[in-house]
């Protein structure tokens, strides 16, 4: 396992893939860009743990802050509102 790739403040985009297995990236953030709020730690990967696997390699887990406007567009109630979501590193890429 390498060092965590992202530091707090990094801009990251969530992958849009839809694996058939159990995974913990909610659909509403896929394809959206947010800011790393903190590194939470390094944990077993739930995508293999949930299916009898060993969770290896473990994954850095981040909290990523999304603007409500980024997620919901005109449906967002107000500018400045945010949604913060825990997401594993293999779902994230540096925002282009």
């Amino acid at each position: 396992m390498s060092e965590p790739r992202f530091a707090p403040g990094a801009q990251v985009t969530v992958a849009t893939r839809r694996p058939a297995c159990h995974h913990r990236a909610p659909a509403y953030i896929k394809g959206h860009t947010g800011t790393v709020e903190r590194l939470c730690g390094i944990f077993g990967n739930p995508e293999t743990l949930a299916h009898g696997g060993d969770g290896r390699p473990p994954q850095p887990l981040y909290r990523v802050r999304f603007a409500a406007r980024e997620l919901w567009g005109p449906r967002a109630e107000r500018d400045g509102d945010t949604v913060e979501v825990e997401i594993y590193e293999h779902w994230l890429e540096a925002a282009s």
């Binding site: 939470c40 109630e77 913060e84």
Partner: peptide
């Protein structure tokens, strides 16, 4: 979130931002 909080009887002042925390993993 504001609409949901209002249904719980909680009215937020106009200037206040809402931070929703989605507990999706290990925290």
């Amino acid at each position: 979130p504001r609409a949901v909080l209002a249904e719980f009887g909680t009215q937020l002042p106009d200037g206040m931002a809402v931070r929703v925390h989605d507990s999706t993993a290990d925290m």
